[in-house]
Design a protein around this nucleic acid. Structure first.
Lengths: 230, 230
DNA sequence: ACAAAAGTGTTAGGCCTACACCCATGA
DNA sequence: TCATGGGTGTAGGCCTAACACTTTTGT
């Protein structure tokens, strides 16, 4: 079963799909890495991902590999760049379609098989296999750009969250501090948040108002040509 | 020379790089297509592009194919999406890294060999080979998004242009009408335009002021964290 | 002379930013 | 009681959008 059974008239590159998975712990952005069990780069940390099968799209591959390697199921991944430099992989020519996804930290079941999947803060990231450092850097840039124009941040928070949590998230991603009142005003004015529970009257002044992301309202606004900007 | 000399343990897809080339004739956006000389889809119109060689990146391939098929040299192309659906090509599994570029219409020398390269308005686009309709649609969307945040429009105009020409370009891409004065104010306030020639005094009131894009100033502003928005 | 293009300013409303004090809770 | 976090409003500046008339030139 080690034979070279698949033959072509011209050389073909191999194609992989890799995933940059972002999480948020309330303070900083985290990235999910796996430790490689095989050569090359054995024992090095790397982005989850693997070879695209002949009967699946890159996105399907990314989701499949993500589940196999980290236990994450049903994650919405989005491709952001294809890395096609010639010398990316010592074994053979490999082109990678890189994806990113935002997940709630709590959803990661932890390495359900031997694969060590682990969350890292941006400051703790070890040297990565292949050109995964480069892929990660670009993913971070895209995340910053994206969160200004699409309500992707909510995917990182619990379904119900406080304004402070949301602000912390924006501040962590963009590395900017916002004024508390201005942030809340701006965010509420967008009209895509709903108060999750009726505020309690009288007594509880200290308990923060809880919000939910209102996906239906966002979809409606977007259809009308509304452009989110932050 | 028809032998299958390149063999792998697992099946490999072929990878192509295709280009959506935009031009502007002063009124509408144009797209450069080539007529295919070979099967499949022989005689159909298609995006310029071709198979990525084993020793070149997707971007290098896009530029090479562009020159071979349309005579356009030294164009800056940018990838915008990778199309990896399984049934894209009847011959074999083909994954395409799609690129776009903006060029001045005048720069296209015209089909320098037998390849018929021709500009089409959006409304005249014929049925395209493969899934190139889909690729083109996405490129148009990206162009719209992009022009709001990056000064890419200038690549479509002559080096020196009038405010009206620039406005026509924005209106053509975004399908929006702007107020003449507001458009000019907003654009000038960005600080990335330079008057190209000193205005003539006295006599010529009717002759429009000519501008140039000031790339140096834009680079400087951008480095300071300035974000272009339109 | 007529049509087409270009030059020119103002106003009102909305949005952004910066900023300070009080109250409730938990340690 | 003290530190922390949350709730709340305003004023000034800037940007935006809406809007009309005049001049020049080419036909």
């Amino acid at each position: 079963m080690n034979e070279l059974n698949y033959c072509y008239k011209y050389p073909h590159p191999a194609v992989t799909a890799d995933c940059v998975i972002f999480g948020f712990d309330g303070v900083s952005i985290k990235i999910l890495l796996i430790q490689r069990g095989i050569e090359p780069y054995k024992n090095k940390w790397a982005l989850p991902g693997g070879f695209v099968c002949i009967d699946e799209s890159a996105e399907e591959c990314a989701r499949r590999e993500l589940e196999e390697e980290t236990g994450l199921k049903g994650v919405t991944v989005e491709q952001f760049h294809t890395f096609s430099d010639v010398e990316r992989d010592p074994r053979e020519r490999v082109i990678t379609v890189a994806h990113y996804a935002l997940v709630r930290l709590a959803d990661v079941v932890g390495g359900d098989d031997a694969n060590a999947a682990q969350w890292f803060s941006q400051t703790e990231i070890p040297a990565l296999a292949f050109d995964h450092d480069k892929i990660l850097q670009l993913a971070l840039e895209r995340l910053k750009e994206r969160i200004c124009f699409e309500p992707i941040g909510f995917e990182l928070l619990a379904e119900v969250f406080t304004m402070t949590e949301l602000q912390n998230l924006y501040e962590a991603i963009l590395s900017i501090k916002f004024d508390r009142r201005n942030f809340a005003n701006k965010m509420l004015k967008l009209g895509i948040l709903t108060e999750a529970e009726p505020r309690r009257e009288g007594t509880a002044r200290r308990i923060a108002t809880k919000y939910k992301f209102n996906a239906a309202k966002y979809a409606e606004l977007k259809q009308r040509g509304f452009r989110l900007e932050f």
